[in-house]
Simulated scan of single mutants.
Amino acid sequence: MSTPPQQPDQPSDAPAQPTAYPYPNPQSPPPGGPTGFPPPASPAVPAQQSFYAHPTLVGQPVQPQPGQPPQPGNPYVQQGPYGPVPVPPPGGNRGAGRAVLWAVVGAVVASAAWAVGVFVVGGKDSADLRGYSSPSNLCSGADYSSFKDEYPENDSSPTHNTLKDAALDEGSCSLSLKKTGSSYADAYLSIQLDLHKKTDPAPEFTATWKNYDDSHSGYDVEKVTGIGDEAYLVTEDTTSGSSSGSRYATLAVRDGWMTYSMSYSAYLSSYDDDKDPPQLDEVTDWLKSDTKSTLENLRD
C-alpha cells in the first residue's frame, strides 16, 4: 500500500512525511467383561456392520452371527468406516459416544468446508485491474505537465523503479521540480502505481488513507469524487508564521485492484527569500488533473 515516501535530498528542516481420529478410550464394559480395543479381527470372523448403517445398534452389544463364535475383545466396539468405534454400554455414560459421533461429523463437515473454500477462492482469483498496465518507466509514463508553469526546468536524472511479479506489478518515480534558474530542487514529486494481481487492496487502501490523519498528526484528509472507485487527498501546511515550513499534498486513488498515488512536497528553505511555494489549493488542482490524465494513459 502506498504511503507518502520520504523525498531524497530534503533540507534538514524537512518534517517527516507521511492424524488419526481422536476417539476417546471406550467406557469400561459391565463387570466381568474385557477392556480396551479388540485386536484385529480374525479372517474367519466377518467384520461387523457399521453403527452408521444401523443406528438402533448404538449402545447395544454386537451379537454374533448364527454359527459364529463371539468376537473377542470389547463387545461394545463396533466396526466403523474408519476402524473400530467404541460405543458406551447401556445405562452408562453416553457422553463419550456422542463425542465420538460429533468428532466424526465435524471432520466430515470441516473437509467439506475446506473443499468449498478452495473452490470459491480458486474461482475468484482473477484480478480486477480495469485494463491498467504498468509501464517500464513511470517517470515517462506519468503526466505531470500541470507543474510545468511553476517548475519549467526538467530533472535530468529522475529515479524510477519497476517490479513485475505474478502477485504484483509496481512502478515508482521520484523527480525534482525546479524553477527557472534554480541549481537545486525547489520541490519534489513522487508517483507510485501498484497493480495487485492476487489480493483485493480495497480494505487496506481505505484503512490507510481515510484514517491518515489519525496516525499522522497535523494532516488533513479529504475524500475526492470522480476519480476511480475511491480517492483521498492528504495535505499539510506548516508555513504559516514560519520561515522554514513546508507544504505537502498527496492524492491517492484506487480503481478496482489498481492503486495510484501522486505526492508533492516543497520547503520554504529551498525558495528565494522573496518567493513562496504555490498554495495548496493550486497544488491539489494540479494533482487531480495530472492523475486523471495519467490513469487514462495507463489503460490498455
Rank of each mutant, 00 (worst) to 15 (best):
T3C: 03
P5S: 11
Q10I: 15
Q17E: 02
P18C: 10
T19H: 12
Y21S: 03
Y21P: 07
P31G: 07
P31M: 06
P31N: 07
G32Q: 08
G36L: 12
Q48C: 10
Q49T: 12
A53M: 00
L57T: 09
V62H: 02
P66M: 11
G67E: 11
Q68A: 11
P70R: 11
P70C: 12
Q79V: 04
Q79Y: 04
G80Q: 01
Y82R: 06
P86H: 04
G91C: 06
G95N: 13
A96F: 01
V100C: 10
V100T: 15
W102Q: 10
W102E: 11
A103M: 12
V108R: 04
A113L: 15
W114N: 08
V116A: 15
G117R: 08
F119T: 13
V121E: 14
G122K: 01
G123H: 15
L129A: 12
L129R: 05
Y132F: 15
C139F: 10
S140P: 04
S140Y: 03
S146L: 06
S146W: 04
K148L: 07
E150K: 11
E153D: 13
E153I: 08
L163C: 05
L168W: 00
D169V: 01
L175P: 07
T180E: 15
Q192E: 10
L193P: 04
L195E: 06
L195A: 06
K197R: 09
K197N: 04
K198C: 00
T199L: 09
F205W: 01
T206A: 15
T208M: 03
K210V: 06
G218M: 03
Y219A: 13
V221S: 09
E222F: 05
T225N: 13
G228F: 02
L233G: 05
E236K: 12
E236H: 10
D237L: 06
D237K: 02
S240Q: 14
A249N: 03
A249R: 01
L251T: 01
A252Y: 01
M258G: 08
M258N: 09
S263M: 10
S263V: 13
S265F: 06
S265E: 13
A266S: 14
Y267F: 14
L268D: 09
L268N: 03
Q279K: 13
L280G: 06
E282L: 09
T284S: 13
W286Q: 13
L287N: 06
L287S: 08
S289K: 15
D290Y: 02
D290G: 12
K292A: 15
